[in-house]
Design a binder for these strands. Structure first.
Lengths: 191, 191
DNA sequence: GTCTATACCCGGATAGAC
DNA sequence: GTCTATCCGGGTATAGAC
């Protein structure tokens, strides 16, 4: 039915990922979507409104992808490691994290909310798994699972930053390997 | 002497930090610097040229600040921890890392170089300290210091991303505390 | 719903006077 | 060195016709 609406949203998702919020103009969206000016402004009153719809879709998609990985069967810590080693287009960065650089996104609650929601969800899910890993004796009980979950997500997000700065995926991969060493070679002497 | 040049560079540094490269216009620089159009284009032929000068200055300043912390006397691992706990305006993000989100910066070698240089320098310095910590027996010898250094820097950069997304310094602080737990509660049973 | 026209200011300069 | 004038296209819409 609403082919235009659909095309506008997916196109905006792609442009926000590539160029961020300030870097994405209504005209660029229209051109790439093949949708006219009048049509776009008929369905979305402002650029911010369309961006919000696109962000919400991207956040939902990211959550679904991560959920699929983290809900797999198997040892909890291994699932976290699988998530860390997941294949990624590193130099492209994170479709959600990228937007946190944009002051207009951070300043507008409606534009910031999808980021907060996606990262909040992922952190909670990781924390639950890390707690399970503690219960299995694979991680020390005295560690704070919530903090550790933030660390895991931060390594990924920071890895993207370092990779783009170096124009190479290498720093991302090193950061991940360093974290895996920290998580797997620890004082589980309790068992 | 060249008060104008100086004012243009420091103003551009501030605007790049706040708004990134695409988000910073020559006009905004001129207005905030109190320098006219003609003057600005007399000293810098393009926006990119001025941005490059500003980036180089910011990279040098960041390196100096980190050097001061990491060259302090004392135990090597403790110096890394001090660096991690350093006071920061978390929601402002990193003046260098922020620019890695910008596709125009990543695509232009002259604009990307200061980022690569700053992060490369910090990673090397951290790796050297972590190697010292291994020699002191405070970290397992089998860990790769280079990877670990990338992890440390990634946690900081990723922490900024999570904090801005949440509009709160909390995730940054959690990520740091999680990393400190990982670095200090490890299998140093070898000694 | 979609199209075209119009508007107004900004981005990123260039040219030439002072 | 700095100022003012000028330029051309893009950003972000709004208005009204079809």
């Amino acid at each position: 039915m609403n082919k235009s609406i659909e095309k506008l949203i997916t196109t905006t998702q792609a442009l926000l990922w590539e160029r961020g919020y300030v870097g994405t103009s209504p005209r660029a969206i229209q051109d790439r979507a093949g949708v006219g000016q009048g049509s776009m402004y008929h369905h979305f009153r402002t650029k911010a409104e369309l961006a919000q719809a696109a962000e919400e879709r991207s956040a939902a998609e990211l959550i679904e992808e991560v959920r699929a990985l983290l809900d797999a069967p198997g040892d909890p810590l291994d699932r976290v490691l699988t998530y860390l080693r997941r294949e990624r287009d590193v130099l492209k960065g994170c479709r959600i994290g990228r937007l946190a650089a944009d002051p207009e996104v951070v300043a507008d609650p409606a534009l910031r909310k999808p980021l907060e929601h996606a990262f909040g969800w992922i952190t909670e899910r990781l924390a639950a798994l890390l707690r399970e890993a503690q219960d299995c004796g694979r991680l020390p009980q005295e560690w704070d699972a919530q903090s550790l979950a933030a660390t895991v997500l931060a390594v990924i997000q920071g890895g993207y930053v370092l990779a783009r700065a170096a124009n190479s995926p290498a720093p991302f991969e090193q950061a991940i390997e360093g974290l895996i060493a920290l998580l797997t070679n620890n004082a589980t002497a309790e068992d």
